[in-house]
C-alpha cells in the first residue's frame, strides 16, 4: 500500500519528462509525410528518413500536421523526375537514423541519371548524398583527356557551342521578326 502511494505521488510530476525518452519511442507512432515529383506518384516517407533533407526537415518541423492533413497535402517537387525522387526516397529510407558510411557505391551508374540526381539532391539539401554524388561525378573524369571528358560529360566543344548559339540566335531573330510582322499585321 505504501508502495502505490509512493508511486502515484512521484509519478505524476515525473511523467511528462520521462515518457518521450524511455518507453515512448516505439509506442508513439512515427509520423509520415507525403512527397511527389513530376510524375505525381506519391511517396509515403517517415519523418525520420526525411531528416536527411534539410529543405524538407525545415518545412515539416513547424507544421504540426496530423496524419490526415499530411496525406491530404503531399509536398510537390515538380522539378524532380519521378524515378529520381524514388532514388532519393529509397536512399533516405535506407539511411534513416544511421550514420552515413564514407562511401556509397549504390549510386546510379548512368551519367544522365546521376546529373539529375545531383540537381535533385542539391535542391533538397541532402548533404551526405550530395557529397557522394559529386565524388562519383568527379571520379568519372579523373585521368581523362579533355576530349574524353567532353564525351563522358557530354559537353559540346566551344566551336559546336558557338554554332548552336548562333543557330539559336538566328531562330530567335526569325521568331522576333515573325512576331513583329504579325504585330504589324494586327495593327493593320
Amino acid at each position: 500500500m505504501s508502495s502505490t502511494e509512493q508511486g502515484t505521488s512521484s509519478a505524476a510530476p515525473a511523467e511528462p519528462t520521462t515518457a518521450p525518452e524511455s518507453a515512448a519511442a516505439p509506442e508513439v507512432p512515427e509520423s509520415f509525410y507525403y512527397v511527389h515529383g513530376k510524375d505525381k506518384v506519391v511517396h509515403k516517407v517517415s519523418a525520420g528518413a526525411l531528416q536527411h533533407s534539410a529543405l524538407i526537415h525545415g518545412m515539416i518541423s513547424n507544421l504540426g500536421y496530423t496524419e490526415e492533413q499530411a496525406k491530404a497535402n503531399p509536398f510537390p517537387f515538380e522539378n524532380i523526375d519521378g524515378d529520381i525522387l524514388q532514388m532519393v526516397v529509397d536512399w533516405c529510407n535506407q539511411h534513416k537514423g544511421k550514420p552515413t558510411p564514407p562511401e556509397d557505391t549504390n549510386l546510379p551508374k548512368q551519367k544522365e541519371k546521376l546529373f539529375d540526381l545531383v540537381l535533385a539532391v542539391n535542391y533538397l539539401e541532402i548533404k551526405e548524398l550530395l557529397t557522394y554524388c559529386c565524388k562519383q561525378v568527379a571520379m568519372m573524369v579523373k585521368g581523362k583527356s579533355p576530349e574524353e571528358i567532353r564525351e563522358i560529360w557530354m559537353i559540346p566543344t566551344d566551336a559546336e557551342d558557338e554554332a548552336a548559339e548562333k543557330e539559336a540566335k538566328k531562330r530567335a531573330g526569325k521568331e522576333a521578326a515573325g512576331e513583329t510582322a504579325a504585330a504589324a499585321g494586327d495593327a493593320k
Binding site: 544522365e112 546529373f115 539529375d116 545531383v118 540537381l119 542539391n122 560529360w153 557530354m154 559537353i155
Partner: peptide
C-alpha cells in the same frame, strides 16, 4: 537530361 555546365 541535365548538363554538367548547368550545375549550381
Amino acid at each position: 537530361m541535365s548538363s554538367i555546365i548547368e550545375m549550381p
